[in-house]
Amino acid sequence: MRGIYYFAVMTLYSLFRRRTVWGVAILTALALAGIASIPAYGLSGGGRFTVDTGLTSIEIGSLVLAIALASGIFPRDRETRIAFPILAAPLSRTQYLLGRYMGTALVQTGFIAVWGAGLVAIIALKGYPMPSDMAGALLLLGVEGCFLLAVVFFFSFWTSPPLNAPLTILLFILSQMSVRDFTGLMPGAEGLMRILRLLLPHMDSFHIKDPVAHGFDVSPVYILLAALYGLAYTAFMLSLARSVLLSRDLR
């Protein structure tokens, strides 16, 4: 655990000294300012539009951040040979993966927390009623962010960064689809499509922005189960990533 922890700290140092993170931070500030300036339009009142748009923006921001943070880490470590002395002596490959993952996951969840706090501040400043399940919605977005990061890590061990981004986005889109919509993509092969859908994650489980925006109560049991599901899928993706990394020759 000590090796993983200190490598995560090393990863944090490295990420915060890179321009990518600060570029995303500036974009985030601009997005929050944009959401704050959205008028209520008198459509549905109660800041519903702001909550809905804000949570959706955080979700998209989380996807972009995961790709920006993690898609280049391993390819860069290999290309610049940073990985070799680290893997030769202090760390095992598993520790390397988990250290890098923990460091980036801290940045990812930190950003989601800041975005969420920004959204809450906007709702408060505008005088809209605070949705009761806002914390639950943000928690699930945080879990989704960690899951997306694990997906990006998995792809990064066997693809290049330019291929990683479209693969992750494709998975993100397909994983939002219902079984019926997914099988509808190839109506002639429903059995095959059902198998594929079963293997793909159900990322729609993490999205409760509609009931939250409408002020509807979401059961804590649901939030807990969805969070557990997300963490289990994250563990599965990290196991896959580890399996790929263990089998690789580091030339």
Binding site: A226, L228, A235, S239
Partner: peptide, 15 residues
């Protein structure tokens, strides 16, 4: 969700 969670956890450990 519970079933998927358990299956994924078992698969992770096996892998």
């Amino acid at each position: 969700m519970l079933r998927d969670t358990l299956v994924l956890a078992a698969l992770s450990v096996t892998l």
